[in-house]
Design a protein around this nucleic acid. Structure first.
Length: 297
DNA sequence: GTAAAAGAGACCATGAGGCG
DNA sequence: CGCCTCATGGTCTCTTTTAC
């Protein structure tokens, strides 16, 4: 199994909790990146719980100063997977960004999820200002990580390369030897707004797909990392076979033994464990997941 | 004249409040 | 409690204005 990353601009996750959860399960997504979550800093715990599939964690980075916007990640909880995902956010004036750092024993990749809202009364940042801020981020990624990926909605019409804003953006990508890998419409109006960007030297992504899930006005982007998802290691656990316990024999000896002891809770418990040890058989089982552990009586 | 910036209107989602 | 209405906020698209 490959490690699958997906991205979707949900245009509010608040009223699509079931859709989002189904999406993660249906497409076997290991890291779901969401922009325009429209989640809030406080009071949205029930909504976050509703979009969280069993065994998964949601990290929400809501917009702080006003409603709308917001980035969220959905990924398996660390205790149910054999890799670790650490998330964080960074502050920028012209766009929102949050990172997910994937780390397994054999592979690592840094995923930056970006949402750049269009210009409005509340967002006065010009294209030039955005490009300068974005340049700093790209520069840092280039210096810090060998494998990284930028996903998100930057509100450039990438399908119109002649547009002046698009030209400057593409030029910035070229300057840092980056490639934009989405070449089909990602928005209901036919424009390519949602992007996946990796270094030109990228040999770790494959199977890029764009699907209209009709959840929002944007389409779902999906990409597989060219690494096998670390399979859960086999571990041996020691357990007791309680089915082997003979209740009548256990009861008789338990009551006999009680007569010889002080009637304290601690001693009774100790006795119980000794007898259970005596009358149940130890068995070894090999199960999937985590490091080998041992249980001593 | 052209490109960028700004404004207006349409549309959609959300939440509060009123009503039956 | 559920439904409806309305105000608010956000985005997109088109048009107008401004700067070079």
């Amino acid at each position: 199994m490959h490690f699958r990353i997906a991205y979707l601009n949900t245009h509010s996750s608040r009223n699509k909790t079931d859709d989002v959860q189904d999406l993660v399960k249906e497409h076997n997504i290991d890291l779901m990146c969401i922009t325009e979550s429209w989640l809030r800093e406080q009071g949205d715990e029930p909504i976050i719980a509703a979009i969280t599939p069993p065994g998964y964690t949601v990290k929400s980075y809501p917009r702080k100063d006003r409603t709308g916007g917001g980035i969220a990640f959905i990924f398996p909880s660390n205790d149910s997977s054999n890799y670790v995902i650490n998330t964080s956010t960074s502050t920028h004036e012209s766009f929102e960004a949050a990172s997910a750092n994937l780390q397994s024993s054999s592979f690592s990749c840094h995923i930056l999820c970006v949402y750049r809202p269009p210009r409005s009364k509340k967002n006065c940042a010009t294209n030039e200002f955005f490009l300068n801020e974005f340049r700093d981020v790209v520069q840092t990624l280039r210096k810090k990580y060998t494998r990284f990926m930028i996903v998100g909605d930057l509100n450039f019409h990438i399908d119109v390369p002649s547009a002046p804003e698009t030209k400057k953006f593409i030029s910035l990508l070229n300057e840092f030897e980056l490639q934009q890998k989405i070449h089909v419409p990602t928005h209901k109006d036919g424009h390519t707004l949602d992007l996946i960007i990796t270094p030109l030297s990228d040999n770790y992504t494959k199977n890029i797909t764009v699907i209209d899930k009709t959840i929002s006005d944007h389409y779902l982007l999906s990409v597989d990392l060219n690494t096998q998802k670390p399979s859960k290691t086999k571990r041996t656990v020691t357990s007791r076979n309680w089915k082997m316990l003979e209740p009548s024999k256990f009861s008789t000896e338990f009551h006999e033994a009680l007569k010889t002891l002080n009637n304290t809770r601690r001693l009774v418990l100790e006795l119980f464990f000794e007898l259970s040890l005596l009358y149940s058989l130890l068995r070894l089982s090999t199960i999937a997941g985590g490091d080998s552990i041992s249980c001593e009586p």
